[in-house]
Design a protein around this nucleic acid. Structure first.
Lengths: 109, 109
DNA sequence: TTACTTTATCGTATTATTGCGATGAATTAA
DNA sequence: TTAATTCATCGCAATAATACGATAAAGTAA
């Protein structure tokens, strides 16, 4: 069928999965790193820094905006992108939730 | 083309993406949570706890094993699964690396 | 041996993702 | 007005991912 059954999982699980998707492609990791490491917005030169076609970069940016982890401010004819801090913190919190839930045990395999 | 160009990204970026993929589907988040919250291994009853077919769960487990974040010990006819601690820590470290690289700035959009 | 249990794999259908050339939209500059 | 710039979107092609029924594989128990 090929369709993820989101309705059978919790909102928390679905949101973790969606935020993880933001980091689940190396191009998006690269974009997020470029945006995170700068104090100012990045106006479009993302295409120059990535060895991908402009259309492809735009598509990744669209996906990141859909998830909410970045935002774009229009400054014609450019668009300035930056990290959307509340969602970045949400990712930190949710990933932390999941990763900290692990309890190590010597009786395990 | 539909093929991720892994060769044009750094090893770090590719590994972050691969580890993120482990968390990028709600069923895998659910599996990882079940394994993380238990001190002992989980022998197969994952299928009973997830509203997915046995084949589907097995496929997700295979993907998680491929990434390395879980391991399975054969205890015929069962297989006991648990978190692979070093890789779990790797995920914590790499996600931390990326998430902590963000520098908030009031001059940003 | 013959069931039975448990898990993995195969085959298939369907949808999602990745990538890019071409084009469109919106603004600026000449 | 006419380019030029910048980014988004469209359309297409190809691969990846999701899901599940059916079957195979590997062991135990009778």
């Amino acid at each position: 069928m090929g369709v993820t059954k989101t309705e059978i999982f919790t909102d928390h699980q679905n949101r973790v999965a969606e935020l993880a998707k933001a980091f689940a492609h190396p191009a998006r990791v690269a974009i997020l790193q470029l945006l995170a490491e700068r104090k100012a917005c990045v106006c479009g030169d993302l295409v120059d820094e990535l060895p991908l076609a402009q259309a492809t970069v735009s598509q990744h940016l669209k996906e990141l905006k859909r998830i909410g982890i970045i935002k774009g401010d229009i400054d014609p004819p450019r668009v300035c992108y930056c990290i959307n801090e509340p969602v970045w913190e949400e990712a930190r919190t949710l990933f932390g939730n999941v990763l900290d839930a692990f309890i190590s045990s010597p009786t395990c395999c």
